[in-house]
Design a binder for these strands. Structure first.
Lengths: 201, 201
DNA sequence: CTCTTGACGCAACTTCTGTTGCGAGACTGA
DNA sequence: TCAGTCTCGCAACAGAAGTTGCGTCAAGAG
């Protein structure tokens, strides 16, 4: 009984991983250039230096491919700031999020993320959980503010985070207006003031 | 020289308008059922009782069709509330927006709007202007609050509106969490408190 | 090194998407 | 009512998207 293969054994090794990275990279590239609708699997394969069947085998549908590609780019950790005051923390968080959003691809890539979620059945839910977890990561900002006595203890951290970040995504996804620093700071200060009870301007 | 036709004359009359309405209605229907990616022009035509060439002639691409359909459904006027106080106005606005978002189709239709914008070149900008104008419609809420002395005169109305509405769209587009009334009110109160300088809870 | 197994390339194929030309029916103005 | 257009339906077509079977090559274990 030599060579007993583990069922469903995957190969983490060299080529497979490289191919995966190349394809996902090419996907982001094409996405930023032509948008979700115009993205073709064949073009992605060509740029990745890979045959189209390879892509189809790993990612059965376009939304899954796009979602996977986006998930990888979104894995860059947004560090939770700790400046010692709520306003400073929220400003830092908002700036980091704004930089991530407009960093690569700009509004188009951001919109493609949502497009993928709108397109496949399971993805919808999976991406929802992903984002919810991401929002939850920032809640320590509020919890620390509560401990410092800056905000009342019945303040809901999730609401504060989502309100701060929501304004930024609104611009990126719907209006397409630029996320200039003045706006980012204004939003952070407005929300911070609402939580602490001090006027924002 | 009888019957001098005006160049580019359109026919507003009976059939043309009916066909247009049927197709756009069917588009929304299919969109809500299967999502943007799975939406097929042929299926839309079938439901509208129309041949697919008719659809292709009027709307050359899928994103244009979807954008047009969405634009029609978005034309329902969201009345600008006037309760006499900023908190009340923002609550009413947030509730109206939340109702519109989750009213029909839910998260899926909301996401399809963005998907269409991510997909076509000119649309991107056109839809951006559409949303910006929609946000601007609500600014009187803040302007009245400034006149009443509720908020300082250097408060930016657009920032307040976008922050309020942004949190709602964030849930609909990214996390997919439900827009329950508790959340909607919490957001409105938080932003209102930030603008007026009073604690939200 | 050698053997086994999984992943990829290739080509042919099927299916779906989008296009074009023409004839018939519907709308408008007189 | 009647003529002049405009729009739609139909069918045939061109091209892209996605699938399948098989041979070959790379990765990992003995």
């Amino acid at each position: 009984m030599t060579h007993v293969p583990r069922v469903g054994a995957q190969r983490p090794g060299g080529r497979a991983a490289r191919v995966r990275a190349d394809v996902l990279g090419a996907t982001i590239e094409v996405l930023d250039e032509v948008g979700y609708d115009q993205l073709g699997v064949e073009e992605v394969a060509r740029r990745a230096g890979v045959h189209k069947t390879t892509v189809y085998r790993r990612w059965p549908t376009k939304p899954e491919l796009v979602a996977d590609a986006v998930r990888v780019t979104a894995e860059v950790e947004i560090p939770v700031p700790d400046t010692g005051a709520l306003t400073g923390d929220l400003r830092a968080l908002a700036r980091a999020v704004a930089a991530t959003i407009s960093g690569g691809g700009g509004a188009r890539r951001a919109r493609s993320i949502v497009a993928a979620a709108a397109s496949a059945d399971g993805l919808d839910e999976a991406l929802g959980r992903f984002w919810a977890a991401r929002m939850a990561l920032a809640t320590p900002i509020i919890e620390r503010a509560i401990e410092r006595g800056e905000v009342p203890s019945d303040c809901d951290p999730i609401t504060v985070i989502e309100t701060t970040v929501g304004a930024l995504w609104l611009r990126a996804l719907l209006t397409g207006e630029p996320l200039d620093d003045a706006f980012v700071v204004a939003v952070a200060d407005l929300v911070s003031a609402g939580a602490t009870g001090e006027a924002s301007s």
